[in-house]
Design a protein around this nucleic acid. Structure first.
Lengths: 155, 155
DNA sequence: GTGGAACCTGAAGTCAACTTCATGTCAAGG
DNA sequence: CCTTGACATGAAGTTGACTTCAGGTTCCAC
């Protein structure tokens, strides 16, 4: 960290928990931006940390990078995102999580009714037929998040 | 379908909802087996359908193919699996689903407490720190299933 | 006995989200 | 000034779960 309050990739990696390679990747994908030194090295504003916190949170909820990018794009260009911005975005996540939980419960419900019956029929078993599960609830695609990783904790 | 009750790949693909290419892949991976005609074409026993129902169900729960393979390997070699066999295998899923639901709820809980607060801090926010969420509940790795796909319905 | 759908194989491609590599440049403490 | 750790780049590799491709073979209803 240096006198002016710009951060190097190393700083940002350390403080965000993302690998340097991931930061470069995110930049290519348009999720974050950086200024450059005269020598071409990246320098980040402090606000990138919040943006990255957003990215991590969204990824944990199960959004793809593309979705994260789109969400970030709806943030007002110039100014720092406000609480209202954050609330708007996280509200959508809430519904998404509800949906995910609902889908899992439906699956669990089906499992309970299947355990011991040994049905596992391609036609009848709800566990083997998740699209039916979703369909009977009148919902379209059901998205569940990728596995939560542990890799990013204290280190 | 032919007189003897062996099924062709096409039959199995049609009735299981898996693509022919997936069936060949599963065979290479040791999830299913097939006999061959004198000409080298695959012929499946009817029981492969139940096995595939298991695969689909397990995948929906969120197991990797490797895990599915291991589970299937515990099935008794010679005889046809009984209901009890299938029940034993699917019983473990219940805990797994519970764990997944629990993890999602923890996430959702954190989200609720975050909405509107705009915290999104890398250090403080539970949504940005799922490993903490998992840790405080005293559980190890938290696995969530891959997205449920719709592709497999009527067609 | 034949036409054509269905089948065969190994190799390569796909997708997401990154990581790793090879090779070369920058920055700053001593 | 110089060393050396941090940084730069584009290209290629990784993983899981398949799909697609190219080029040939089999099956079986007519």
């Amino acid at each position: 960290m240096r006198a002016d309050d710009l951060l190097t990739v190393g700083d940002v990696a350390h403080r965000s928990g993302f690998a340097v390679s991931a930061l470069r990747f995110y930049e290519r994908e348009g999720l974050i931006t950086a200024t450059r030194t005269s020598g071409g090295q990246r320098r980040y504003e402090r606000s990138v940390l919040r943006r990255l916190a957003f990215v991590r949170a969204a990824r944990n909820i199960g959004l793809s990078l593309e979705e994260v990018r789109q969400a970030l794009d709806t943030l007002p260009g110039g100014r720092t995102p406000t609480k209202a911005d954050w609330a708007r975005l996280s509200k959508a996540w809430s519904a998404r999580l509800d949906e995910q939980i609902r889908a899992l419960r439906a699956l669990r419900e089906g499992l309970d009714s299947c355990i011991g019956c040994g049905c596992l029929s391609l036609r009848r078993c709800a566990i083997s037929n998740p699209s039916d599960v979703a369909a009977t609830r009148g919902v379209g695609a059901v998205y569940l998040p990728r596995p939560l990783t542990e890799e990013h904790g204290r280190h």
